[in-house]
Amino acid sequence: MRVLQAATLLLASTWAFAGDKDTLDDGYVEQSSWRLSLAVGAGQSSSPLYDAANMPLYLMPDISYYGKVAFFDNGILGAGVDLSPHWSISLVSRLNPEKGYFYRWHVSRIPSMEYTFANMPTVSLDARTAEQQVSVNEVERRPTAWDGGVQLNAWFDDWTLRLNGWTDISGQHHGHELSAVAGRQLGTAWGQWRFSAGLFWKSENLMQRYYGLGPDEATYLPRYQAKASLQPELGLYWSLPLTDGWRMMAFYRYRWLDTAMTRSPLVEQSYQHSWFLGWSYRFF
């Protein structure tokens, strides 16, 4: 109830400050310049694993740079070229996000500013006894992996499309990931809204390295062999420009985890979600 009251007060104060403005942060990044924003508020990024704590979100940085070829965008480093006014292709690299679920504080668990939604798949999480579960505190530390890949972007009026193919270039899990994300932005008198839809496929090797059991882990359990996983995600992002540089923002993101993941003895929940409500200020 206190959280609901705080959110109501926060929104009420926003309407009081929002009005006619000559200069607003429209989110655009000029070529060969840095963008730095910081959001302050309240939120959470959950972990679906046994005994893995949820990560509180109080501060959310937004850092990006786009040159003529090279760019950095919130943890993704790449270089790309425009194929046409509506299409671009890039070589990209990133820190693999799977390890983040095993820790309360991990940089890969900070949600990006892109949110997705899709049709809900069939998922199940069978009731397990304590003898069928294993805590993240009882298994070996999962590796930090670095992925490389290709990214294809497209823009059509208010619609966007992003296709990614990732592979492990650090030799830690020898797996791959494919994703497709489509989104639409809508401007209203009540702020800017962004809806998107995405689907994420993760290979068997990737899933086994992070959610399978090694030969020396939880020896009292049958060996679990992970399969390739297909994970859709839905999300909604909202922002309301205030004065120069300031905006009110909120988002909610929900990802369904299929049986390839939920059957792992490490996994307690059949979903992962993140939410945040606060203010954002763009420094430059």
Rank of each mutant, 00 (worst) to 15 (best):
S37E: 13
A145S: 13
L206P: 04
W155K: 08
V136H: 08
S196C: 06
L186H: 10
G165N: 09
F283D: 12
Y28P: 01
D158V: 05
P61R: 08
A154Q: 05
S64I: 10
V40E: 08
F200E: 09
D168F: 01
I89N: 01
Y65T: 09
P97V: 14
S203N: 11
A197D: 01
R223F: 00
F195G: 07
R109S: 13
P85R: 08
W159D: 03
P232C: 06
S13P: 00
F251Y: 15
A52F: 03
M60Y: 08
F200L: 11
A18W: 08
R247H: 15
Y101W: 14
L36Y: 06
W34D: 09
Q269H: 14
G78Y: 02
E131G: 02
Y103P: 01
S270Y: 05
E114I: 13
S45C: 00
G165P: 00
G214F: 03
A12F: 02
S37I: 03
N164E: 14
S135E: 10
M120K: 10
V181K: 09
L236T: 05
A226F: 06
T262N: 02
L178M: 10
F117L: 07
L125V: 04
G212T: 08
R35W: 00
S112R: 11
P48Y: 02
V29S: 03
R35H: 09
F102M: 11
P61G: 05
F17C: 12
A7F: 07
P111A: 08
A6F: 11
T188S: 07
Y254P: 01
L213A: 10
L49K: 09
R247T: 13
G67M: 07
F284P: 04
E131V: 04
A260F: 07
L11F: 06
T8I: 03
P61C: 06
D126T: 06
V29E: 05
K99C: 07
A16G: 10
R255V: 11
R104P: 08
A70F: 15
M120Y: 12
P215R: 14
S37Q: 12
Q44M: 13
V69W: 13
P265C: 03
F200W: 11
R253Q: 15
G41T: 05
A127E: 13
P265V: 08
L213T: 12
S90V: 04
A118P: 02
Q31V: 14
L83T: 07
F72Y: 15
S135Y: 05
G245M: 10
L213Q: 05
W166Y: 08
S135N: 00
Y103D: 13
A42E: 08
V40A: 14
A260H: 01
G80T: 08
L24G: 00
I110V: 15
G27L: 01
L186K: 04
Q185E: 07
K202Q: 15
P232F: 02
V92D: 07
R104T: 15
